Computed example of a mutant assay.
Amino acid sequence: MANLKAYNIALKGLGTGEHRFDYQVERKFFEYFDGGIAEDGDISVVLKLEKQSSLIVLWFHVEGTVKIQCDRCLDLFDQPIESENTVYVKYGEEKYEEGDDVVWIAPDESHINVAKLIYDFIILSIPIKHVHPDDENGNSLCNPEMLKKLAQMSVKVEKEKPADSRWDELKKLLDNK
């Protein structure tokens, strides 16, 4: 995280009250995190920080697009994302497990780096299903050549035959438990 210094927030000189930080996340940011879903994007992050005497509250607003691979046709596409997240930073010598939205730092810590938090919020805002969105007519924007190959390779499933009516009386016995 040596080159993610732009995401360091100095805590020592920061006065009590609200502060705002704006970040623009692009391809270079994603290079510092291995093996993620997204490797490129154009995302704006607005961080509002409220420093109190014993607590810091961070509000993140993440909005933009990430370039991800379509699960259906394997082409890259721009997936719009947006999320609102809150993180509480507490001071303490020991780190306690209080949930995903609490971060513990030492009382003598001079700064906090929010790059990993921003990355996590970007990745968590990506939908589980990665498929090209449909156009205004409802047609898929997936690669047509790949869809054609998928149709050729798909397994044809035979429709179920209607149940044999000779067994209906016995099935009634099973339903009378």
Rank of each mutant, 00 (worst) to 15 (best):
M153P: 10
E18H: 03
K67F: 04
K172V: 02
I118Q: 06
E158R: 10
E82D: 01
Y32S: 14
A163Y: 04
I123D: 07
D108W: 13
R27W: 04
A163C: 09
D42L: 00
D175N: 15
V87K: 01
D120M: 02
I126A: 05
L11Y: 03
R27C: 11
D120I: 00
V45R: 02
L74G: 07
D101S: 12
Y91L: 13
V131T: 08
Q52R: 13
V131I: 12
E31K: 11
L173E: 11
E98T: 14
G138P: 00
V57S: 13
I105E: 00
I56V: 15
E158D: 14
D40K: 00
L174T: 11
L14N: 07
I128T: 14
P107Q: 05
W59C: 00
D135F: 07
V155A: 07
K67E: 14
R27Y: 08
N8E: 06
K172P: 14
F60G: 04
Y7T: 05
K116G: 04
V46A: 05
V25W: 03
T65A: 15
K67H: 02
Y32E: 14
M1A: 15
V25L: 10
V103F: 14
K159N: 12
Y96G: 04
W59H: 13
S53T: 03
L47N: 04
P80S: 14
L174P: 00
Y23D: 05
N139M: 10
L58P: 00
E97G: 08
D134V: 04
A10V: 09
L117S: 04
F33I: 14
T16M: 09
L74R: 02
K48N: 08
L76V: 04
L55W: 02
A115S: 14
N139Y: 06
Y88D: 00
N139V: 09
